[in-house]
């Protein structure tokens, strides 16, 4: 009996030691395995071309809160005044990713660009607007007729102005369109070089602030909702699927962080864009930060392509199959319900 008790105790001790060692080895392997992709290799350097709009906040949050680093990415942020410019940087190979709206993507596609949309990171129906001077006699949309309107060509500004005119039955020939750069819109309107401008975000805010009561703003949120997207070149996506996956994952984490910690995201936005806090609080609800790939993006792109062809903005006579410009695998892998693009 005494011997059996001792034997049982010995067996229990041995099993315990074996279990502890096995557990330790397992945990070590798991930890090392988990870290191997992150730590054992040096971080992958990426350049992100970011348009300086609040729509791009998810990228900034992912960068500032270390979600890129957690994915083993060393991301360099390069700011551009418009998504069109950020996309151009990608097309030139100066950046790996870009934040850009639907309209520049459509134009790039018509231009034969080899790009892929990886995900929509935010949507907003009030990002674009027409800001006008009241002293130019503009108090309702119909007053635009016969006025000089500034527009930023190749951007949603251009499409939005057309949408606005169509919806309000104003022929384009009834207005004088002046092409401006994003930075010129503010001075152009303040100096009364134009009576109104089709612009976005911070420029609109600066104009409202500069004109004060002399300003009026028109939206077209019911008919136009801007999709703010992440784009990379086709070749990059084909050669860096893991990297793309990590970027999309980091952006999804950033979007979750924005929903759970809006104040943190606002702080990041204020630091990045020098936005007035009161203004930021006012416009923040206009943005819907949700990582998705909705089929409506394709419908929007197709609609814009038809418009572009009708406006003779392209030599292409056939609406492209924008499905070929969508890369949904990365998002589908981490968030399948967010992908509703038809295949």
């Amino acid at each position: 009996m005494g011997t059996s008790v001792i034997t049982t105790k010995k067996i229990a001790v041995i099993l315990g030691v074996v279990a502890v060692i096995a557990g330790g080895v397992f945990v070590t392997m798991v930890l090392q395995g988990g870290r191997s992709g992150k730590v054992s290799r040096s971080p992958e350097r990426l350049v992100f071309a970011v348009a300086a709009l609040l729509d791009s906040v998810p990228v900034l949050v992912a960068h500032h809160q270390g979600f890129f680093v957690q994915q083993g990415l060393d991301v360099e942020i390069k700011f551009y005044s418009a998504g069109k410019d950020a996309l151009a940087a990608v097309r030139r190979g100066e950046a790996d990713f870009a934040t850009v709206a639907d309209f520049p993507i459509m134009l790039a596609a018509l231009d034969g660009a080899d790009i892929r949309v990886l995900a929509t990171i935010s949507k907003s129906g009030r990002e674009n607007s027409i800001v006008a001077r009241k002293d130019s006699g503009i108090t309702v949309p119909a007053h635009i007729r016969g006025k000089v309107v500034g527009v930023i060509p190749g951007t949603t500004s251009e499409f939005f102005l057309d949408e606005f005119l169509v919806m309000h039955g104003i022929p384009r020939s009834d207005i004088v369109v002046v092409e401006l750069t994003p930075g010129e819109t503010v001075n152009a309107l303040l100096s009364k070089r134009v009576d109104a401008v089709s612009t976005w975000g911070q420029h609109a805010a600066d104009l409202l602030k500069g004109l004060g009561d002399n300003s009026i703003r028109f939206f077209a949120q019911e008919t136009y909702q801007m999709y703010w997207n992440i784009v990379a070149s086709r070749n990059f996506v084909a050669g860096h699927r893991d990297t793309v996956q990590k970027v999309v994952t980091a952006l999804d984490q950033a979007n979750s962080s924005i929903r759970n910690n809006a104040d943190g995201a606002k702080k990041t936005a204020m630091e990045a864009f020098r936005v007035d806090p009161a203004q930021l609080r006012e416009v923040w609800p206009d943005y819907e930060f949700d990582l998705a790939l909705d089929h409506t993006l394709l419908l929007t792109l197709e609609s814009q392509a038809r418009w572009a062809m009708k406006q003779n903005r392209t030599t292409v006579r056939e609406v492209p199959n924008f499905q070929e410009f969508i890369y949904a695998d990365a998002l589908r892998r981490i968030k399948p319900a967010a992908v509703s693009v038809m295949r």
Binding site: E163, V166, M167, G169, P171, E222, T223, Y224, D294, H295, T296, L299, T300, S303, R306, W307, K310, S340
Partner: peptide
Amino acid sequence: FTTTGQLSDRNERLAGVLLIKAREMFS
């Protein structure tokens, strides 16, 4: 509407948006 072309553009645009909204709603 003053011109048929304008009407056509607006209707086409509204129809497109309606379809987009419908799709968005369904999605």
